[in-house]
Computed example of a mutant assay.
Amino acid sequence: MKKAIFTLAIGDNPMYKAAVESFEAYGEKVGADVIVSDELHYKLKVNNKKYDASPAWSEKLYMAELLKKYDRILYIDADMIIAPWAENIFEEYSSLNTVYMFNEGCYKNRTEHAKKINSILGEVDWPIESNEMVYFNSGMILVSKEANLFKNASAEEMQKVCNEVKFYDQTYINYLIFRDKIDYVCIDKKFNRMPLLGLDGYKDASFIHYAGRGYREKIPMRELKYIIDYCDFFAETLSEEEILKYKQQSWHWYMLKQQRKTKLPIALLSAVFGLFHPQHKY
């Protein structure tokens, strides 16, 4: 059986590089190829600033093409770390007719998004579990050919909703599951450990998702926290030089963000922000 881990990583964000390296280590362990999209295959016109949406989110549709070559695809967002101790998700969730995702609807009410996409693409019944509407997070998707998740999917439909529905890609994938009556199972939270579950114990998970603000607490940017955790998790395999380089890159990324806001020289910004965050400056 041919398996692949798929992600989208465009740009030089150090978080993406670390993510891909964690995916590659996991791929070696579970016998899966790693495929990284560094360009878009679908050109959506996304222009609604209200939802802070990205045209890149459409790339999840590319799994339909990959499933012509691979039997199973594990899609992972590039703001995740697959920990060195992660279990083999392909073995834990083995049904080929089932889509496996994490149900964030238990923790966040997403009925507004469901109603909106229903009004655009047609009415669909969204299931209710424990008095909450089922709504899956699309940061991690395990799918096989036989599940037919993308059989009736199209970039044209996604274009219709991308400026009208929050989390348009995620909401559209949920819509496909319920419209086309795809078999689904909610995965254990350890395979998509999200910040909405709180901070306690997140480092024990297998797939750690730094969505939104991530787990940064008093650290000023999620990329900084991501790299700190990544270097901690992989301390046994990373050299001191590699750790230093990652932390330097994440600090520089933070300075680039501040420069876009202030238009001030990076050297000045680094000196000033280094006074407030000396433990994070490299």
Rank of each mutant, 00 (worst) to 15 (best):
F150K: 07
F150S: 03
K151W: 03
K151C: 01
N152D: 09
N152M: 08
A153R: 05
A153D: 01
A153T: 06
S154Y: 06
A155M: 11
A155W: 03
A155I: 15
E156F: 04
E156D: 11
E157G: 03
M158K: 04
M158L: 15
Q159G: 05
Q159V: 10
K160G: 01
K160D: 00
K160T: 04
V161I: 15
C162W: 04
C162R: 04
N163V: 13
E164V: 12
V165P: 00
K166C: 07
K166V: 13
F167G: 02
F167R: 06
Y168M: 10
D169Y: 06
Q170V: 12
T171V: 13
T171W: 03
T171K: 05
Y172Q: 07
Y172H: 04
Y172A: 09
Y175S: 02
Y175E: 03
L176K: 07
L176G: 02
F178L: 07
F178H: 06
F178Y: 06
R179F: 09
R179K: 15
D180K: 10
D180F: 09
D180A: 12
D180R: 08
K181G: 05
K181M: 10
K181C: 12
K181S: 11
I182S: 02
I182G: 01
D183E: 13
Y184F: 14
Y184R: 05
V185N: 00
V185H: 05
V185G: 00
C186F: 10
C186Y: 07
C186L: 09
D188P: 01
D188F: 07
K189A: 13
K190T: 12
F191W: 07
F191H: 01
R193M: 14
R193L: 10
P195R: 12
P195K: 12
P195S: 11
P195N: 10
L196C: 10
L196A: 00
L197E: 05
L199A: 11
L199G: 02
D200L: 15
D200R: 15
G201W: 07
G201N: 07
G201K: 09
Y202H: 11
K203H: 02
D204F: 09
A205E: 02
S206Y: 15
S206F: 15
S206L: 08
F207Y: 08
H209I: 15
H209A: 14
H209C: 13
H209Y: 12
H209E: 08
Y210R: 05
A211E: 04
G212I: 14
R213H: 08
R213W: 08
R213E: 12
G214A: 13
G214R: 10
G214Q: 09
G214I: 14
Y215M: 10
Y215D: 01
R216H: 06
R216M: 15
K218H: 05
K218A: 14
K218T: 14
I219R: 07
I219P: 00
M221W: 08
M221L: 14
M221Y: 11
E223I: 15
E223N: 11
E223S: 11
L224D: 00
L224I: 15
Y226E: 02
Y226Q: 04
Y226N: 04
I228S: 03
D229M: 10
D229S: 04
D229G: 05
C231I: 14
F233D: 00
F233Q: 03
F233C: 06
F233R: 05
F234P: 00
F234E: 01
A235H: 12
E236L: 12
E236N: 13
E236T: 13
E236Q: 09
E236C: 06
T237F: 08
T237N: 08
L238Q: 03
L238D: 01
L238E: 02
L238H: 01
